[in-house]
Amino acid sequence: MVQNISGDLDDVLSKWMKQIQNQTAGMTLADKTAISEAGGKVFMDALRKETKAKHYSNKKDPKWGHMADHISIMLDGKSRRSVNTDFNGGVIVGWDNRYHAMNVMRLNDGTKAIIGDHFLTNLRNNNELRSKILEAEKSKYDEIANKKGDD
């Protein structure tokens, strides 16, 4: 009886290993980017809502616009300001111009004249949001893995 279980377990484990190898080893850079982008979109939406809720004003700036309207996803390593020049499929969510990025830094961290409210830091550390990001990445991963499993 023990031999049957170990024999069946070996078969199950070998099939499982082949399935995992087919799904993960065959991941292309485009697949990894798609997974990262799915999580980045969830964070970007939450960041836009948080920025509008805490720091939106009625000021109409024709040149710069409002910082809540200029949040975007950038491919890590493809941005000209990126520290990482070796693209690995990761994404960065943030402000697409320096003017807004500097204002956010001052609002989040504070200065001598401004008390920081840490809205960005708190959002990054929000466990509920992290769970939503992981769920989005997992569903994208499952979608890609199922396509690879069908091949």
Rank of each mutant, 00 (worst) to 15 (best):
L9T: 12
G26F: 08
L120Q: 11
S14M: 13
I92R: 11
V12A: 14
F87W: 07
K15T: 02
Y141W: 15
K78R: 15
N122T: 10
L120A: 10
S14P: 05
G149D: 13
D117H: 10
Q21H: 13
A145Q: 09
Q21L: 08
A53S: 07
Q19W: 11
A113R: 13
L9E: 11
N103A: 00
F43L: 14
D8Q: 15
V104Q: 01
L13N: 11
E137I: 01
F87S: 05
E128V: 10
D109C: 01
D151F: 09
T85W: 03
D31L: 03
I73G: 04
R124D: 01
E128N: 11
K60G: 00
A68Q: 06
L75W: 06
R81E: 04
K54W: 07
H70C: 05
I114E: 04
K18R: 14
D61I: 05
K63T: 06
Q3F: 09
G65Q: 05
D10F: 12
K147R: 14
G149H: 12
W95Q: 00
Q3M: 10
N97S: 10
S14T: 14
N127Q: 15
A68Y: 09
R124G: 05
S36D: 00
V42H: 01
K41I: 11
H70G: 03
E135I: 10
K112M: 01
R106D: 12
I133R: 12
Y99S: 01
E143R: 11
S79A: 15
E143H: 12
M44V: 02
N146C: 04
N22P: 03
H66Y: 09
K52F: 07
G39P: 04
S6K: 15
M27V: 05
V42F: 07
F87R: 11
M27K: 08
D96W: 00
N108P: 08
K138F: 12
D117T: 10
N127G: 13
R130N: 14
E50I: 01
K41G: 10
D96R: 05
P62Y: 07
A25H: 09
K59A: 06
K59D: 04
K15P: 03
K59H: 11
D31H: 11
R124L: 08
R81W: 13
M1V: 11
M102V: 14
G110F: 10
K148Q: 08
I20P: 04
G77M: 02
Q19T: 09
V83R: 15
S79P: 05
I114Y: 00
Y56Q: 15
L75D: 00
L13W: 03
G65N: 01
K15C: 03
A34D: 14
G149Q: 13
A101Q: 01
K140A: 14
A68T: 01
K15Q: 09
V12M: 14
K41H: 07
A53E: 06
D151R: 10
G116Q: 07
A136N: 05
T121D: 06
E135K: 11
V12T: 13
M27A: 09
N88M: 13
H55M: 06
G77R: 04
K147V: 08
D45L: 08
R106E: 07
R80V: 06
A30K: 10
N22C: 02
T33D: 02
R124W: 03
K15F: 08
G65I: 05
V91D: 02
R80T: 09
A38E: 02
K138D: 15
H70V: 03
M17S: 14
K18W: 13
A38S: 10
